[in-house]
Amino acid sequence: SPTASASFDLRRYWTSLIAAVETELDAAMPMRPPETIHSAMRHAVLPGGGKDGAAKRAPPVLCVAACELLGAPRAAALPAAAALEMLHAASLVHDDLPCFDAAPTRRGRPSTHAAYGTDMAVLAGDALFPLAYTHVVAHTPCPDPVPHAVLLRVLSELARAVGSTGMAAGQFLDLAGATALGESEVMQVLTKKFGEMAECSAACGAMLGGAGPDEEAALRRYGRTIGVLYELVDDIRSASGNGKMRSNASVLRALGMERALGIVEELKAQAKTEADRFGDKYGDRVLPLYSFVDYAADRGFELQDAAARP
């Protein structure tokens, strides 16, 4: 329902969440010896003052929103939300390496290898992956309200999402030049590189919030759709000159602008259909899910402004 969606202040919701996630991340990576590696890890994860502004933290927001939809406390999902950001950052650090995308910048600042050297960037990624699991194990309130068996499923899901059939598969297909091929290959790269992480975010929130199997499945589909939508809109915006600097230009070349815009509409409709399943049972708590779809599609506000004025 578009009217209800408009009445929900996603910007305020997102801003308060980002502040909580930043605090959690900052505390999870104190400076300690050996200082170089911890400094590199902090550089990779914490936003700093780059010209592209604060990190948007979409995976943590999805995770917490899914958990809160089910009426569970935010505290149950926050450690996993921070872990998602660590895993995401670790993948990006390795994706930026000279042997991959050779990206000199990330979020408007030098990429981790540009600032700390290639060897240290490899190790920063290698250390961020396990830190994510350490963080979840050490900080998730367990066994109450999160039972050990649920925590295990969350850990397995986190590892699956960044593994050889998840995000790493997307990076592999991208390397292999799949985005230069047809629509189905391009959509597969987007699904693996961006959909898996978003699906995992929503799925972890669902598990931590005590979702039943059908609810978890719906939230997985919702998350996956949002992840692809979010990235495709990024690519469209940068192709039209008002988005971020770097993008998958080949995605737009392969799809064509008209088809890309058509897919955006399809994804929006799909995500809203999934969110609709929760409206009857959870009422207004479904509003963050609706407004997230609109934000992913339209970017109606700039989050860096929001983050600057908490």
Partner: peptide, 12 residues
């Protein structure tokens, strides 16, 4: 690099 990352994920 990817195979290493994927092995680490697979371990967990």
């Amino acid at each position: 690099v990817l195979a290493g990352d994927a092995l680490l994920s697979l371990a967990f």
